[in-house]
Simulated scan of single mutants.
Amino acid sequence: MQVPLYDEVHGLALDIVNASARGDEEEGAIAYAQLKELCENNDGCDNDHPLQWEALGDFSHDHVEAIAAYDKGLRCAQRLGLLEYIASIKLAMAESYSEVGNSAEAFVLANDAMADAEHAAESELQAAIKDFLNEHGNT
């Protein structure tokens, strides 16, 4: 990933978080729209990276929009062979499905995420996935 893309995604994420902390919905919506535009502009280009899509999904207020962003990020991560992102996005998708009461889909995604995280030798991510599975009664 190119540093300018990371910096731009990180900056927009901070803008969204800071706006939320201040209760400034308008500023948060502007930063979210900028993040969404960045993702759409990079979609399928050399700058396309799962980080931007995962961030977009994380800040989406709508489950359907979040899953759509995560799905694009997952396909991008798979295309680039980035196992850590594959696992992280699957965990984020599992969390989103869990929030809307679809525990069966959440369980499948979380277990898939664990398998990917184990292949990526990503112990912190593995711990987060185990925590998710333990919290949701599936071990």
Rank of each mutant, 00 (worst) to 15 (best):
A121L: 15
D15G: 09
Y85F: 15
S98W: 07
A55L: 04
S96H: 00
A113W: 00
N47V: 11
A55Y: 03
W53A: 01
E25D: 14
N111K: 02
Y85A: 08
L109T: 04
E135R: 15
T139F: 11
E105W: 00
D46G: 08
K36N: 11
H136Y: 13
A66F: 11
G28H: 05
S88W: 02
L83V: 11
L56I: 00
I30S: 04
G101D: 05
L83M: 15
F132M: 07
E37H: 07
L38P: 01
E95D: 08
E65D: 15
V64G: 11
V64H: 11
V64K: 12
W53E: 03
D24A: 05
E99L: 07
A115L: 10
F132T: 04
L14F: 06
S60G: 05
L80H: 00
S88A: 13
A117T: 06
A120P: 04
T139L: 11
I86S: 02
I89W: 04
N47E: 11
I16W: 00
V3W: 08
S98R: 07
A33F: 10
S98D: 13
I86M: 05
A77E: 08
N18T: 14
C39K: 00
Y85W: 13
L125E: 10
K36H: 11
N138I: 14
F107Q: 05
H119L: 15
E26W: 06
L133H: 04
G137L: 07
I67N: 06
M93L: 01
E65I: 03
N102T: 10
A29C: 09
A120D: 10
D116Q: 09
Q126T: 14
N111V: 00
A31I: 06
A29Q: 13
R75E: 11
A92G: 09
A13L: 13
A128S: 15
E135H: 12
H119N: 15
A31D: 05
V108H: 06
E54I: 02
A104T: 09
F59S: 02
A21C: 10
I86T: 14
S123Y: 13
M114G: 06
D43I: 09
D62P: 03
L5H: 11
N41I: 06
D46T: 12
M1Y: 10
L125G: 06
S103H: 12
M1I: 10
E25L: 12
A29S: 15
I86A: 01
I16S: 00
A127I: 10
T139K: 07
V108F: 06
D116F: 12
D7W: 07
A19I: 11
D48N: 04
E54K: 01
K72T: 15
N41L: 05
Y70V: 03
H49C: 02
D7Y: 09
F132W: 06
D112N: 06
E37V: 02
I67K: 00
A92C: 12
V100T: 10
L35H: 01
G81Y: 10
H63W: 13
H119R: 15
N111T: 04
